[in-house]
């Protein structure tokens, strides 16, 4: 396996963690988030800052995960106050607040980001396998989560918040849990990203990135797991396979969003389900 393949595998793994983590919030629990890239960024910045201080890899990843998760719970508090469209715009705002803050912080490198991040100590192939291992663990976790009692409760909250409250579900706790888990995993993806890229820029975590993550979730099928795994692999590899697709990556993302929503609002997973069950 060449370095090129290792890098593609790493990117696929990171994107998969990002998409599946957003899926916990938006797919399972039904809380629209248009600012997921901010938590990816929080994880990345935390891990990068600590790694520059000489902290070892497992600890930086852990710190990135926890910081993103904690801030995620705080942001989740907004979902207790505002719903649906209000929440979509608020989470989008969180993304801009994060970027606007980071860009102005000299100790985080400002516009130039953080460069010269120490190596992971693993060769690229082994590190790619580490990312794949993490992605596999996240897949297994979300499959389990979906079938667990908590998954059913998320479903109830997503379906009809007021009805869920009527049957005695503590809606607030579950929303915050979904935000906490989802954002923590995005933070993990951020931590994994820094040892792969070795440099981070604020713009990596902008609104377009949030939309790219959302695209993978929506095209795979909001709330599904395997649909999203498939769409993440397809959408990440597409620009690599074809030169045209890499030049027009955003154009293709946008067009796919429109077409999928128009003809199969539940994504690839819904398409497959309708084909297999008459």
């Amino acid at each position: 396996m060449s370095a090129y393949v290792a890098s593609i595998v790493s990117v696929v793994g990171i994107n998969m963690i990002l998409a599946l983590s957003l899926n916990i919030i938006t797919g399972f629990c039904g809380q629209v988030s248009l600012g997921h890239a901010a938590f990816y960024g929080i994880g990345a910045y935390t891990a990068a800052y600590l790694s520059k201080l000489g902290v070892a890899l497992p600890l930086t990843l852990l710190a990135g995960t926890i910081t993103a998760g904690l801030i995620g719970v705080v942001v989740g508090l907004t979902s207790l106050r505002v719903r649906h469209d209000f929440l979509a715009v608020t989470t989008m705002g969180i993304g801009f607040v994060f970027l606007g803050f980071v860009r102005k912080q000299k100790w985080l490198g400002g516009e130039l980001g953080i460069s010269g991040i120490p190596a992971s100590g693993l060769d690229p192939l082994a590190y790619a396998l580490l990312i794949v291992g993490a992605a596999a663990a996240v897949i297994a976790f979300t499959v389990w989560l979906k079938r667990s009692w908590m998954g059913f409760t998320f479903d109830a909250v997503a379906d009809d918040e007021d009805a869920a409250r009527t049957v005695g579900i503590n809606v607030s706790t579950y929303k915050l849990t979904a935000f906490g888990i989802g954002t923590a995993l995005a933070g993990l993806a951020g931590g994994l990203y820094i040892y792969f890229a070795r440099i981070i820029l604020p713009d990596t975590f902008d609104f377009v990135q949030s939309i790219a993550i959302l695209t993978m979730v929506v095209i795979g099928g909001t709330g599904s797991v395997w649909g999203i795994v498939a769409s993440t692999i397809a959408l990440t590899l597409l620009p690599e396979v074809s030169r045209a697709a890499s030049d027009y990556r955003l154009l293709i993302f946008g067009a796919m969003l429109m077409l999928v929503m128009r003809f199969s609002p539940d994504g690839l997973a819904g398409l497959v389900r309708r084909r297999t069950t008459p």
Binding site: R81, F96, G100
Partner: peptide
């Protein structure tokens, strides 16, 4: 100016008001 850029201020204001 030292803490947030222009675009963040608008959204920060939004979030504070909404809360």
């Amino acid at each position: 100016a030292d803490v947030f850029d222009r675009d963040a201020i608008g959204f920060l204001f939004l979030i504070v008001v909404l809360m």
